[in-house]
Amino acid sequence: MTTLRIEGLRAEVAGREILKGVDLVVSSGEVHAVMGPNGAGKSTLSAVIMGKPGYRVTGGKVTLDGADVLAMPTWERAVAGLHLVMQYPTEVPGVHVDDVLAEALRSRGRDTASLGAEIDREAARIGFDPSLVTRALNVDLSGGEKKRNETLQMAVLAPRIAILDELDSGLDIDALRDCARRVEAATHESSLGVLAITHYVRLLEELKADMVHILVAGRIVASGGPELADRLERDGYGAFV
């Protein structure tokens, strides 16, 4: 059982405070959706948890089973069990997915002998063309292919907690379904805990959220069960501002 605990998290970008005290707890097997309007701080939350440069934490704590996440460099956060599925997966020219995964497994002290077979299996499962695996990371991939690629990497690395930053942006409905189902399956198969950041309710049709949190202006203003998403769908964010 793993727990990601976010307490009173405050962070700023370029001197402007974006997160103004966020509290969230995500444990193994749970799916938490964080929803909010543009500019609420959703992407900042995922960036700060993973240690993206350009963000400054000004208060609060993030711990993974008690270990101080904010004190670790990014790669150690990943090795510790956190994984970020990016909203806009970066194109890295000349760097191949299989090479990255091999290095990522090595740093975790894991065997790479079955990596090729693992990639093939995961690619088949989420409908990702396996020939794209030996291409440069995200270069010339469509929106849907990029997200399938992100999901494949998550599945191979098998983190304990995954942060999905707008998995549902920039991809077609088929790709969204394939990716969301794979994440959902991982919550059962390997007790993956999920923090899904999204703007739209449609992601939650495939990814069954246990809890929904509404983030507005850097604070969680409401938390509840899936019915909260229904209310949001009916009334819009205006009701929470």
Partner: peptide
């Protein structure tokens, strides 16, 4: 580029090696 690779759990010096080799690939 660094952040992307490090967010997968690749240590900085290995990420740098991958990026430089990738840079020369074409």
């Amino acid at each position: 580029h660094r952040f992307y690779l490090e967010s997968r759990g690749v240590p900085p010096e290995v990420a740098e090696r991958l990026v430089v080799l990738g840079f020369f690939d074409d």
